[in-house]
Design a protein around this nucleic acid. Structure first.
Lengths: 138, 138
DNA sequence: CTAGGTGCAAATGTTTTGCAGTGAC
DNA sequence: GTCACTGCAAAACATTTGCACCTAG
């Protein structure tokens, strides 16, 4: 349970119960590769018997995002989802039927993105790639 | 002014003033490759002296989207932007400084996307690629 | 102690909806 | 005339903020 505290300290944030708990929830979700909404995190806190306000969840997630601990995605759902920022960058594949999220990276695509930005006189700062897919039969 | 009416009729929508006007505004924005928010369209209507409610703008844009006349994007702004659906698919490059939007397509990336989906046992239905870029110096 | 963190409630911004009136066909 | 369409106001969301209280360091 000490590692989380290190991460928080490194980000210049005080070690508080809501922050530690939220970090734990995000880490716990890593296995299932869930991408959690603020609401999801909030419900997980309530389910764990923690009395944390939704406003605090938003504040903490935003702080985590600024600190680089967490990445915010918008997909096409009208609300944000958050995931723990692992070291390496990756893109997403979302199943339109089940909502499953698969992460991937592809060097060919990464390289072309840089080239395309250059060709248009721009420098690539960041990008967002989401494939909407459906599981194949048999 | 007849072409718009054809498009509306084809979509099974009655030819009404708000719909025709909104279609015109979207077409007028094509030159500058603007991607308009509902609010933008609403303001353009008011500026043109048309008394159309914001709710109607949303309803009409949603109908246009369902009819395939218009494409809705979310980028990372917290609100939707709309553009006339031209025949061919394209992706977007958004300048983080100026907000300028450049459209592009790249066959290499398109091809890899299909391959990647296949490799994971999925069929590619759709995708969204946005490059966040900054204009290069001199 | 005290600056930063928190909960709650109210405010914000975007998009949707209920309903009674209006207009296209 | 009828039924789809519209405007308006209110509702529904997702997210943010103001403020008085609380707590980690």
């Amino acid at each position: 349970m000490a590692e989380q505290n290190q991460e928080l300290r490194k980000a210049g944030l005080k070690i508080t119960l809501p922050r530690v708990k939220i970090l734990q929830i995000l880490e716990a979700s890593e296995g299932g590769s869930q991408h959690l909404s603020a609401e999801d995190v909030y419900r997980a806190l309530l389910a764990a018997g923690e009395d944390v306000g939704l406003a605090t969840v938003y504040r903490v997630l935003t702080q985590f995002e600024n600190a680089g601990l967490v990445t915010r995605h918008h997909f096409e759902t009208g609300h944000s989802v958050f995931e723990l920022a692992k070291g390496e960058h990756h893109d997403h594949m979302v199943c339109v039927a089940s909502g499953d999220v698969v992460e991937f990276t592809d060097p060919v695509i990464e390289k072309r993105q840089h080239e395309i930005a250059e060709e248009h006189g721009y420098e690539l700062m960041d990008h967002s790639l989401v494939l909407y897919v459906r599981k194949k039969e048999g």
